[in-house]
Amino acid sequence: MNRQSSISGVILAGGLARRMNRQDKGLVAFNKQAMITYAIQAIVPVVDELFINANRNIDHYQQFNYPVITDKRDDFAGPLAGVYAALNACHHDVLLVTPCDSPFMPTAALQTLIDERERNAADIAVAFDGERIHPVFMAINTTLKNSLQDYLAQGERKIDRWFEQHNWIKVDFSANPEFFSNINTLAQLADLAIKE
Rank of each mutant, 00 (worst) to 15 (best):
Q111G: 09
V46K: 00
I52N: 05
T112S: 11
D115W: 02
P106Q: 07
Y61G: 04
K72F: 07
H92D: 07
M35D: 06
I69P: 02
G82V: 07
H134S: 09
A139N: 02
D71M: 06
D74P: 00
I69S: 04
G9W: 02
C100M: 09
D123P: 10
V68T: 11
G82C: 05
A29P: 04
A13G: 10
L16N: 05
T70H: 06
N31S: 11
F137V: 06
A86G: 02
A89L: 07
Q111L: 15
P106N: 02
I124F: 09
P103Y: 04
A127C: 13
N57R: 04
L27P: 00
V28H: 00
L80Y: 00
A109F: 06
A13L: 12
R22S: 14
R18Y: 07
T107R: 11
Q111E: 14
A17T: 02
N57K: 06
F137H: 08
Q4M: 08
L96Y: 01
I11P: 00
L96D: 03
Q41F: 09
E116R: 13
P67L: 15
L12E: 03
V47W: 01
A29L: 07
T112V: 13
I43R: 00
K25C: 10
Q111H: 08
A125G: 12
R19I: 06
I40H: 05
K25F: 10
C90R: 01
S6L: 12
E116Y: 09
Y66S: 11
A108I: 08
I133Y: 04
R132H: 09
V46H: 03
R3L: 11
F64P: 02
M138K: 05
I52C: 10
F30T: 08
I114N: 01
A109R: 04
T70C: 09
L113V: 03
K25L: 12
H92R: 07
N88Q: 14
S8D: 05
F137N: 06
K72V: 10
V28R: 00
S8L: 10
S8V: 10
D93L: 05
D59I: 14
D71G: 06
A86Q: 02
V46P: 03
P99F: 11
